[in-house]
Amino acid sequence: MKGLNIHVIEKRFDDVAVLADVDITIADGEFVAIVGPSGVGKTTLLSMVAGLDADYTGAIRYDGAPLAAPGQSPSGLGMVFQEPRLMPWLTVGENVRLAEAERLARDRSYVSCADSLLDEVGLRASRDAWPRHLSGGMQRRTALARAFVVEPWLLLMDEPFVSLDPAAADQLRELLRRLRARVRPLVLFVTHNLNEALVLADRILFLGDTPARVVLDYRVEPTDSHDLNSPEVSDLSRRLLARHQGLLSEMTGSDPDESRHGKEGV
């Protein structure tokens, strides 16, 4: 089987089954948003793909072979967490270079791309700054640079732009588009904001139900609009919601209006 196949028979936390019967196949370079109410298991699913959580039944494979050795993370993986997760005792540049350590250990002649990535995310001047002196948006840009410095073929993003003001989030989405255009990684992007998923992704997987499964696999109609609140995006989201009414009221949780209005709320 070609591409990334995530097959989860069951994932439990103690006595509670969180995910069951999830079987997703994603092609190389595809941008997939994973949408669903909070607590549905989106982050858990991402942790499993990242190799951070191996306690489940099922298998995650790439082109038919296990994605990673047990207890390890797949190589060529970039990951952006909900928080920037920078090492506070390393400078911005050192934080980015930390992701290159593996490459450097394998290939002594490898020359760091950290500086050019910091250039791309507009942080060249902050290379020697401590993370705590950066704004929230700058810290997230550092985390993006760290994810792309490994030239990932697989990129996992867990609500990377929440708790930012809308302008900063727009800027980061634009940056993500630019960085992605060059490397074309397969992206799994967790969000609870339907409009964000619509402007970024090729395909949206809606998680719902208990234990969670994929309740809708939706191919996004391409849109030129990058604005979460543009009429075009609102229209897309309205049509989607109209077509899958029953499902979506469950999926978007208590407040389907949240995504319709393009709020950045948590």
């Binding site: 951070l52 993370s73 990951m79 090492m87 930390l98 992701a99 250990a105």
Partner: peptide, 21 residues
């Protein structure tokens, strides 16, 4: 543990993880 997860995800070699994380 969240910072250790970063080191794991980027497959940072053990010695480097020890020294920098």
């Amino acid at each position: 543990a969240r910072l250790l997860a970063v080191a794991q995800v980027y497959r940072v070699p053990r010695t480097v993880t020890l020294r920098r994380v």
